[in-house]
Design a protein around this nucleic acid. Structure first.
Length: 747
DNA sequence: AGCACGCCGACT
DNA sequence: GTCGGCGTGCTC
């Protein structure tokens, strides 16, 4: 009976974008059938009197037994927002990162698209045409043939009159004619064809000339070239200022010359107009940008340009790993060690790791670039899984800046009790000399605010957030105490609310550094760059542009000042306190510190004048700091890899975190329930750490517990996860549980 | 996530 | 007696 005709898409597998684990099978009504393809968003009935948005992730041949199938209600986009390759990548990622089906598809779409509803655009590159087939005239002439299908008849008559026309025109003429056209095509009365346009590569404006490469750059490019068309991962290890970006640009130019596409991932704060401008200058409109500074509408527009093939190069942050670049030939991950490639809020995934997966699936060359490669990537290169390319020298053979360590502990023991803005004499003298020479200074401190802690000198009470288990930061200019986790503010009172005693602040932040610099150097033009001063990408760009035009002498800031910018006027970089990242409860703390120091030191001496770096620290002998000062990545990495191997941490093991959040009682009970369910599944291969309250025990009034699992490979971790599934779906006491594969944040 | 079902405590 | 707490199951 079942006429399993070969018309495909009778059944679809739909990942429902609700927090429901599982994919569901639906029937496709024949009227909707032509519009349903892989990656399409659809509306489906779900549960009792509910409607859900879902994503088409497959076309099963048969339905599960004993279930009455329901019908797809509506197709939400005129064309699927994802390419089939992306659907497969997202499915893979959902499984690996333990994310419910559909959740990554939803997260991957630009918010503008999810909110609005897809805008018209062709499903394939090129122009689609419709033309009447041989039988059409006969059918139209026969009064009976289409008697009961007036819509089809109207379309057919239009087509007979106009001949072969773009489908776009037909859509305009018959806004609701989509099913009619599809029906006519099925009857063989209308032909639909796609005309692929000529490769656009040759038509591009090459406004910015490519500079001459150094021998090391040229050698790297030769290797990348030789790998074209195959999956081949490279680690491009180049010191700061060695010209990695130029290698990317030229490798991408080759890919474009072959008519193929490229994807470039950059860290969050690195996607400045400066970098974007370099790509735009070289490739013009062929570049689509994807970053958080764009409005929803802009992001949506960029996504569509890629999807249609109007732009073939995507430059973007983390989420751009899911950008619909056509015919991908090369993926570049710049500053591959950067932690912003790991998504922490929302479905957790690591864009750099997914870049490896995507490159493999699409036979693309992969370039992981960094001056301080992550130990994961280094180990992959060492084991021969990645090819290593080295750029050991800066362009024009400029030397790396000299780094001077200032031992704050010794200063303090020597009787220098208080340093205004924590600027030691060595550093403030260096600033003075730099300003005298009309050169520029960058001061880096990874902490916002004026003072990081406010304490009562009588009762010792510390100003704490009522909702979070953290101390409040004093922001002097705004006159407030601010919680950096939930954003709550309190008026800053010089007196202790508990006992009326006088309070004093401890711990220097960027605001205090800025104040100290202004006081010490009243003539200097000083600006600060952190999340307190700039709120948008545009603000950030404006400050950086003023600094680049040398309208500012000193730039004080957080990590925002460390990334990717090229300021030839900067001859002095001061690190106010190198130890902030060192104390974090995180096995990557040392690695992170080394990377930050190297990165910020690399801002100095990019011009002809050479450069100098002054690093203030209480731990001058700690390898992460001492070796960063000597620019000795190899020694640091070797030592740190040894340590990781000894204590059994990544890259030599894999980890999975279970993060629990809820009421005090619910979170604890859920964590215990998880541990209880996990124990029998550990099987001697998996080590369980915890359950324990998280490093920050409470955020926004929600109590937090962590469990960490560690094993030699992901397989055993998946097994543990499976054993936890039942508890995780409905944890006791209304808590919420999130799994995190390859976790970065230990907080 | 929602929504129904079902089984035990304190209330008009 | 029942109103309502939340534990459990289900959604194609």
């Amino acid at each position: 009976m079942a006429l399993r005709c070969y018309t495909p898409r009778v059944l679809v597998e739909v990942a429902v974008a609700a927090a429901v684990r599982g994919r569901f099978t639906y029937r496709v009504p024949s009227a909707l059938a032509p519009g349903v393809s892989l990656g399409q968003r659809v509306a489906v009935p779900f549960g009792k009197s509910r409607r859900a948005t879902g994503y088409v992730v497959g076309f099963p041949a048969s339905a599960p037994d004993g279930i009455e199938l329901r019908d797809v209600v509506e197709v939400l986009d005129p064309f699927p927002p994802f390419t089939p390759e992306l659907v497969e990548l997202l499915r893979w990622a959902e499984e690996y990162y333990l994310v419910p089906p559909g959740e990554l598809l939803r997260a991957a779409l630009p918010p503008g698209l999810n909110a609005r509803r897809g805008e018209a655009g062709p499903a394939r590159r090129g122009v689609e045409y419709a033309a009447p087939a041989e039988a059409a005239a006969g059918a139209a002439a026969d009064p009976k043939a289409l008697a009961r299908a007036p819509a089809q008849r109207a379309v057919l008559e239009y087509l007979l009159a106009r001949g072969r026309i773009p489908v776009e025109e037909l859509r305009a003429a018959f806004p609701k004619g989509r099913p009619a056209v599809a029906a006519l095509a099925r009857r063989g009365l209308v032909r639909l064809e796609t005309e692929t346009p000529v490769a656009r590569g040759a038509l591009l404006p090459a406004s910015a000339a490519a500079p001459v490469l150094t021998p090391a750059q040229a050698a790297a490019l030769v290797e990348l070239d030789a790998a074209a068309g195959t999956f081949q991962p490279f680690l491009l290890h180049g010191v700061t200022g060695s010209g990695k970006t130029e290698v990317y640009l030229q490798a991408i130019a080759r890919a474009r010359g072959a008519g193929k596409g490229a994807l470039v991932l950059v860290p969050e704060i690195a996607l400045t107009p400066q970098l974007a401008g370099r790509f735009r200058a070289r490739f013009g409109d062929d570049v689509a940008l994807m970053h958080s500074g764009l409005s929803d509408a802009e992001r949506h527009a960029e996504w569509l340009r890629l999807r249609r093939g109007d732009a073939r190069i995507c430059v973007g942050v983390r989420s751009a790993i899911f950008a619909p670049v056509q015919d991908l030939a090369i993926i570049v991950v710049d500053e591959e060690h950067d932690p912003s490639f790991k998504q922490e809020d929302g479905p957790p995934y690591h864009a750099r790791d997914l870049a490896v997966v995507r490159a493999k699936r699409e036979d693309a060359v992969l370039v992981l670039g960094s001056a301080t490669p992550s130990l994961e990537t280094l180990e992959n290169a060492r084991a021969g899984r990645y090819r290593k390319l080295e750029l050991p020298a800066r362009v024009d053979d400029r030397p790396l800046p000299e780094v001077e360590l200032v031992d704050l502990g010794r200063l303090r023991r020597g009787g220098v009790a208080k340093l205004p803005g924590l600027l030691a004499p060595q550093l403030s003298e260096a600033i003075a000399r730099t300003l005298e020479a009309s050169q520029q200074v960058i001061l880096f401190l990874n902490r916002r605010g004026y003072e990081t802690l406010v304490v009562c000198e009588v009762c010792g009470a510390e100003a704490q957030c009522t909702e979070c288990a953290v101390s409040l930061t004093h922001h002097a200019r705004r006159g407030i105490l601010l919680c950096h986790y939930c954003g709550r503010t309190e008026r800053m009172d010089a007196r202790c609310p508990a006992c009326g005693g006088v309070r004093y602040g401890v711990g220097v932040g960027t605001e205090q550094v800025e104040a100290a610099v202004r006081e010490l150097f009243p003539a200097a033009r000083v600006a600060r760059l952190d999340r307190d001063v700039v709120t948008s990408a545009d603000d950030t760009a404006a400050v950086l542009a003023r600094f680049a035009r040398r309208e500012l002498d000193v730039l004080v800031g957080t990590q925002m000042v460390t990334k990717g910018h090229d300021f030839p006027g900067v001859t002095l970089v001061g690190v106010v306190l190198a130890d902030t990242a060192l104390a974090l409860p995180d096995f990557r703390a040392a690695e992170r510190t080394f990377q930050l120091l190297t990165q910020v030191a690399g801002r100095a001496g990019r011009g002809a004048e050479g450069g100098r770096v002054v690093v203030q620290t209480f731990n001058p002998r700690t390898p992460a700091i001492a070796l960063a000062a000597r620019h000795d990545y190899a020694a640091f990495a070797a030592g740190e890899l040894d340590r990781r191997r000894t204590v059994g941490y990544p890259p030599f093991t894999r980890m999975m975190a279970a993060r629990v959040e809820g009421s005090e009682d619910g979170a604890r009970r859920s964590a215990e329930a998880l541990a209880h369910a996990a124990r029998p599944a550990l099987g001697g291969e998996v080590a369980m750490l915890g359950p324990a309250p998280a490093a920050i025990e409470r955020i926004r009034g929600r109590h937090r517990w962590h469990l960490l699992f560690r094993a030699d490979g992901p397989k055993a971790l998946f097994r543990v996860h499976a054993a936890l599934a039942r508890v995780a779906v409905r944890p006791p006491g209304g808590a919420a549980i999130r799994f995190d594969m390859d976790p970065y944040s230990m907080m």
